[in-house]
């Protein structure tokens, strides 16, 4: 094992970075528990009132649930489409890769507002009239996570040298389908889990598209948060912290799951 020997300057830099990243979070946490916090460094008095109010509000739990299942459906759909698609492109049609690389960065190139307006125009009326429904949102979410899914799956395939593994398996008598299931899938699984997780987090925090596409009809956690910020900063802090903890828990569970599935290989 290589022991890392970080000098004090490295440690100081890391510390500074951690402070920079965690300070806003810590402040939000404190604000969520603060009753009086005006002229002092630390809050003058504490309360659980804001968290209490949040959990008493049925709309919060509803919004959380809505976000959860919309994101889950979108990511699952993306996984179901992208996994075989990227596999086929990387292994059998490498000529298409340049084309795909261009396509998957499009979501970055088009600003959320522009995309939302375009989508609403295209899908209100006409043969596919789904503006304002969950369908259009799931469709948009699919596009949003495209870059993460494509790159993640593709990198995993390249890292494990999928083409050579597949060829070996085929020469040993496996059909393509069986080779994919027995050799490719177990090896790219950790990478796929990470992409899925990343996509999920991105969607969970998505606000612009969601608010413009379905803001009036469907309340996701971000839309809800936006509505409540105006009412009380303390309450919004409580919501943000809860939301953060939720994502943290979800990530941990998925990571553990990924490790467990990969446990056969790592042991």
């Amino acid at each position: 094992m290589i022991k890392s020997r970080a000098g004090w300057s490295h440690r100081a830099l890391m510390l500074l970075l951690m402070v920079y990243l965690l300070l806003p979070l810590a402040a939000t946490l404190l604000y969520g528990f603060a009753k009086q916090w005006q002229t002092t460094v630390m809050p003058e008095s504490w309360t659980l009132e804001w968290f209490g109010e949040m959990f008493r509000d049925l709309r919060f739990l509803e919004a959380l649930w809505t976000s959860l299942y919309l994101c889950a459906i979108s990511v699952a759909l993306s996984l179901a489409v992208m996994l075989p698609a990227v596999f086929v492109i990387t292994v059998y049609l490498p000529k298409w890769e340049t084309f795909m690389k261009g396509i998957v960065v499009l979501p970055y190139a088009v600003p959320g507002v522009v995309a939302a307006v375009g989508l609403i125009r295209a899908y209100s009326g006409g043969p596919i009239d789904i503006a304002g429904t969950a369908y259009i949102l799931i469709g948009a979410y699919f596009i949003v996570v495209l870059p993460y899914m494509y790159q993640g799956i593709r990198n995993s395939l390249i890292t494990v040298s999928a083409v050579e593994l597949l060829h070996s398996a085929e020469l040993l008598g496996a059909s393509r389908k069986r080779a994919f299931v027995t050799v490719i899938l177990p090896n790219i699984w950790p990478g796929v889990i990470i992409s899925t997780l990343l996509s999920f987090s991105v969607l969970f925090g998505e606000f612009v598209l969601t608010n413009m596409l379905v803001g009036g009809h469907i309340q996701t956690i971000q839309v809800y948060l936006y509505r409540r910020v105006g009412e009380s900063g303390h309450l919004a802090s409580a919501i943000a912290i809860t939301y953060f903890l939720f994502i943290l828990a979800l990530s941990t569970v998925l990571m553990k799951l990924g490790k467990k599935m990969n446990g056969v290989a790592e042991k």
Binding site: V160, S161, E164, L165, H167, S168, A169, E170, L171, L172, G173, A174, S175, V183, P186, N187, V264, A265
Partner: peptide, 19 residues
Amino acid sequence: PPRRREVGMVFQSYALFPN
């Protein structure tokens, strides 16, 4: 197809199944 040719192959990169 390759799997019916009864041909074995060893690659430069080994191509062992890591799992």
